[in-house]
Design a protein around this nucleic acid. Structure first.
Lengths: 185, 185
DNA sequence: TATTGTTATACTCTATAACTATA
DNA sequence: TATAGTTATAGAGTATAACAATA
């Protein structure tokens, strides 16, 4: 029903997320744009996450990296970067912050001395477990809106978006992007 | 199946999104965190969006604002801010950029002279329609992975995440967040 | 007194490019 | 020649705080 190619007028009107539709705006084609809904959901979850994690000061991505290093001792930056679709310099900065807070450490690999194996410190392990506990409660506030089957289907659909070989678009001949855009906001 | 409260070891291992699992990492509890999958999907869509919109240099949020102003001539910043869960200063900066590119203009409201009504310029209307066309093609690369029924269900689930009164968590007694975190990354 | 817009400021995230060292 | 990490730099996005104009 949604999406036969063209984005045109459909006159949908949707109340805002916060107050109960004081000034309902016509959302136009936004209602049928998957990326829009995805972004709105992301923002909503982030806000609760932020309130939940205020004491720990760990961004979602920082938590992700701690969890990855915790589960995969000795993992190197380049693999984390690839998994999370980050630039290696971005990954560097991220790891720098976690290292500065003494949550993880770099050790030069004995096998390939270009590589720095990453390990959690004791403090990192502690903060990771605290974060896991807080996030579990935070998650439950959202996942409780779904049955187990619904949640599994939901996650499967999300994975269908981001697990797809090299990405969806065909040839990528453009190569160089003329202007720089930074974040998925 | 996913989520009985505690986040513990489950040993799931998932290949990275790009190359076909060269270094599969143990994702630990990440596999059952809805916010993680949401973020990964968001990043994947953003990357295709970016490649698609390289020529126009419009971020998703900029496009959203243009569409809102186009559909709701005279809408004011504060309403946009509320709908998109943005700070009013952030909204200001966003509108500034669009105004500097001559895509929209501010006119002092005749009814309430504190307010500035927003309108698309001719150029803004042109660029908006170009963006709609590009985004339609971009969207199709993702939505084509789902049947119409699946897509409707998917979007309904996303809306269930972000349309929920004041947000999910109970009392919000904390009020002031001790540290600042900025973006949902 | 409350609301809307505004400015100033600062900090984080991110990417680009160039560099070092290892392989 | 290619890879991993690193540094320097720059730009966008965001929020906080203060302020002005108006209601």
């Amino acid at each position: 029903m949604a999406g036969d190619g063209k984005l045109e007028d459909d006159g949908h009107s949707v109340p805002g997320p916060g107050t109960a539709g004081k000034h309902p705006l016509d959302m136009g084609c936004l209602t049928e744009i998957l990326g829009f809904h995805l972004r709105m959901a992301n923002v909503a979850i982030f806000q609760d996450y932020q309130a939940t994690m205020a004491g720990l000061s760990l961004t979602p991505k920082q938590f992700t990296v701690l969890e990855l290093v915790g589960r995969n001792p000795g993992v190197v930056q380049i693999d984390i970067a690839e998994l999370l679709s980050m630039d290696k310099a971005t990954t560097m900065a991220l790891v720098d912050r976690l290292e500065a807070r003494n949550f993880l450490e770099r050790r030069t690999s004995t096998i390939d001395r270009r590589r720095k194996d990453l390990f959690l410190t004791g403090e990192g392990q502690t903060v990771l477990q605290e974060a896991r506990d807080l996030i579990a409660a935070h998650e439950k506030r959202f996942t409780s809106r779904f049955s187990a089957a619904e949640l599994d289907a939901f996650i499967a659909q999300l994975r269908r978006i981001y697990l797809s070989g090299e990405g969806p678009h065909g040839d990528q001949e453009a190569g160089n992007l003329p202007e720089r855009r930074t974040r998925p906001d």
